[in-house]
Design a protein around this nucleic acid. Structure first.
Lengths: 212, 212
DNA sequence: TAGTCATCGTTAATGGATTAACGTTAATAA
DNA sequence: TTATTAACGTTAATCCATTAACGATGACTA
């Protein structure tokens, strides 16, 4: 199996989403142009992406076998194995993310949340127990958590990241508007929502047409 | 002025963020490698990006004049002119975004929010009045709103987008996990948070090292 | 005032990702 | 059975973004 670039992986997840709905609808086959429309890319892109799975083939005038491709995608994404995550910072955004992962996504689970506010400690939000941030390293290391989600204010983000790294996480997703420093070997995704919104505002002003 | 690619624009905003802090700290000059470290890119990338502003120059062993570059960036990003936005869906995520924009970002303002829940109508969250979604088109058109932020459940997202487009917005940012269809001329940004988290989980599992 | 050195600006090279083109294949129907 | 055709798989071409390389410049030091 070749190493898959980041963008392609992101599309894989979107294909999965759509294929899942197709399975539920009872469809056996799906065309590249259907998938393309569903995730907002070109049919050529879909076919090119699917080339990564040489084992499974589509057939002309029928399309791709939904179940086989789902299986191949899942296998590659290793979505079947459970990945443990924690969330640091139980504000509005943190709560939103906690509720998203409640019940949905069986393969991903937020096993604990942390907050500095003692008011929130030992409470349960969306099925997830909140601990005081002082407990972070202990809990993360004990539970062998792989991913940390940072939803604290900018001033506290680097500190949270450092603690997560010390406790051994392999990936961090940061919603705070600061660029974090993490050692090589830890995958970092910066997701500054206000920045994204500013970008959209910019292109809206400029009337640039483009989609993603 | 050349047309700037999307990625570069995103970096512009990050440069702005950092330069702002530099101004406040009273620095007159800044090096490319400082900026690079601050936003997580290479110094070469910074210099290349800054080539877009031919008028303003840096000097060896001193760096770039902070204020001049701030001014040039602001001028190009047109951040000075106020852009009106609305938010559809006042759940946890919606509230988080509303509070982010309260007071910060003078150039961007969420002028109204909408929700189907009559309980929330006519209340005020984070300084923003909430209307019933039925009012959306009327308010957006009257206020000449340029950007819509969609934070409703997936099932309601397309409907919200259609209403926004009819009312004349030029940009939409969608947090719901569905691919929206919008006409050409409307800039669309899909921002599926759970998808991003799944991506991080994937690379954490694979131990791929990469940063953004 | 001359030399050194750090840093800039630019051009060129590389690499990745998307788009286009085109031959191939199998389902359908005459 | 054969023709037709819609959709696939692949290769090639294009486009865009990043990285590298390198000469130019001006601040600093002796």
């Amino acid at each position: 199996m070749p190493r898959i670039p980041q963008r392609t992986v992101a599309r894989f997840f979107r294909y999965c989403q759509f294929l899942h709905s197709k399975v539920e609808a009872g469809s056996e086959f799906v065309f590249s142009h259907e998938l393309a429309a569903a995730v907002g890319v070109s049919p050529e892109q879909v076919r090119r992406d699917f080339m990564n799975f040489r084992q499974v083939k589509g057939t002309p005038q029928r399309g791709y076998p939904v179940k086989e491709f789902m299986a191949a995608l899942y296998a590659h994404l290793e979505s079947s194995s459970l990945t443990k995550m924690v969330l640091v910072g139980v504000g509005n955004l943190g709560k939103a993310i906690l509720s998203y992962f409640l019940r949905r996504r069986p393969n991903l689970s937020i096993v604990a949340a942390f907050d500095l506010d003692p008011e929130k400690s030992d409470r349960i939000y969306s099925g997830c127990r909140v601990h005081h941030t002082g407990q972070l390293e202990k809990v993360v290391a004990r539970e062998k958590v792989a991913v940390g989600i940072i939803t604290v204010p900018a001033s506290a983000a680097q500190e949270a990241a450092d603690a997560l790294v010390r406790a051994g996480v392999k990936g961090i997703i940061n919603f705070a508007p600061v660029q974090l420093k993490v050692p090589r070997g830890v995958f970092l995704e910066q997701l500054d929502i206000t920045l994204s919104i500013e970008k959209v505002a910019y292109f809206a002003r400029k009337n640039r047409i483009k989609e993603q």
